[in-house]
């Protein structure tokens, strides 16, 4: 099979939410000795970019994105053993989570998927995350960006606390916020660096923040993340 065919199959499997075909196409890519990074950037991630566009145009919704992401990650699992064991490219580090008091995490998960696909190194703290956990993790990782999410009006003020505490602790990371009750005006009031109304916009806002700084279009590889963590001396 032609290389371009394989890449198209990878992309199309993601767009079609097809885990089985994503695995098959990834295996095909490896049997043709394709560079696994290329299989991702020119195949799986490219498919996910199309998914992002479909979401922006309101042709795809939340179930579609979750299933496309499942297909993408299934393909990556097949490619993973073939990655060369060397230092990861210099990706921007993002800490993401739903602030304390709130357990609604679908929106946060969508942003994580999309930023991951856009070449950011994602560190997901989950939901109902204590304020200090954001600050500690951002400090330990020397994070570039902290993403805060909430769906509830009762917990939105927690974002302000996180931003204030980050300043006090001297954490230089930028902050992007989003979620149901959040508005650009609120983001400005509490001193956030960015606001995104949905996952597609989150990619644009995050990329915009680091414009002029190269963001390699490669996926997160857990082993390499942990290698770098060890180098950074995580407690």
């Amino acid at each position: 099979m032609e290389k371009s065919d394989i890449l198209n199959h990878l992309a199309q499997a993601v767009i079609d939410m097809d885990v089985t075909r994503a695995r098959q196409a990834a295996a095909e890519a490896m049997s043709c000795n394709m560079d696994p990074y290329e299989a991702i950037t020119g195949g799986l991630a490219k498919g996910m970019d199309t998914v992002n566009e479909l979401f922006e145009n309101e042709e795809y919704f939340v179930p579609e994105i979750l299933l496309c992401a499942d297909a993408m990650y299934a393909g990556i699992e097949v490619l993973k053993p073939h990655f060369p064991k060397e230092a990861a490219p210099n990706k921007k580090k993002v800490v993401i989570g739903v602030v304390k008091g709130d357990t609604h995490d679908i929106g946060k998960n969508l942003v994580k998927i999309m930023l991951d696909n856009a070449g950011f190194e994602m560190h997901d703290l989950g939901r109902n995350v204590p304020y200090a956990k954001f600050i500690d993790t951002a400090g330990e990782l020397n994070a570039d960006l902290v993403c805060l999410s909430t769906l509830m009006t009762t917990t939105m003020d927690g974002m302000h606390i996180v931003i204030e505490d980050m300043k006090k602790a001297g954490i230089p990371a930028r902050v992007m916020i989003g979620g149901g009750p959040i508005s650009p005006a609120f983001a400005k009031t509490i001193g956030a660096d960015g606001y995104a109304k949905n996952a597609a916009e989150a990619v644009k806002v995050a990329k915009g923040m680091f414009q002029g700084i190269q963001i390699p279009l490669a996926m997160k590889i857990p082993e390499l993340v942990s290698i770098r963590k060890n180098r950074g001396g995580v407690r």
């Binding site: 939410m17 939340v62 179930p63 579609e64 979750l66 299933l67 499942d70 679908i106 998960n109």
Partner: peptide, 10 residues
């Protein structure tokens, strides 16, 4: 919710 809405397809 997440499992449920995926099962709209699966």
């Amino acid at each position: 919710t997440e499992t449920f809405i995926k099962e709209l397809y699966t």
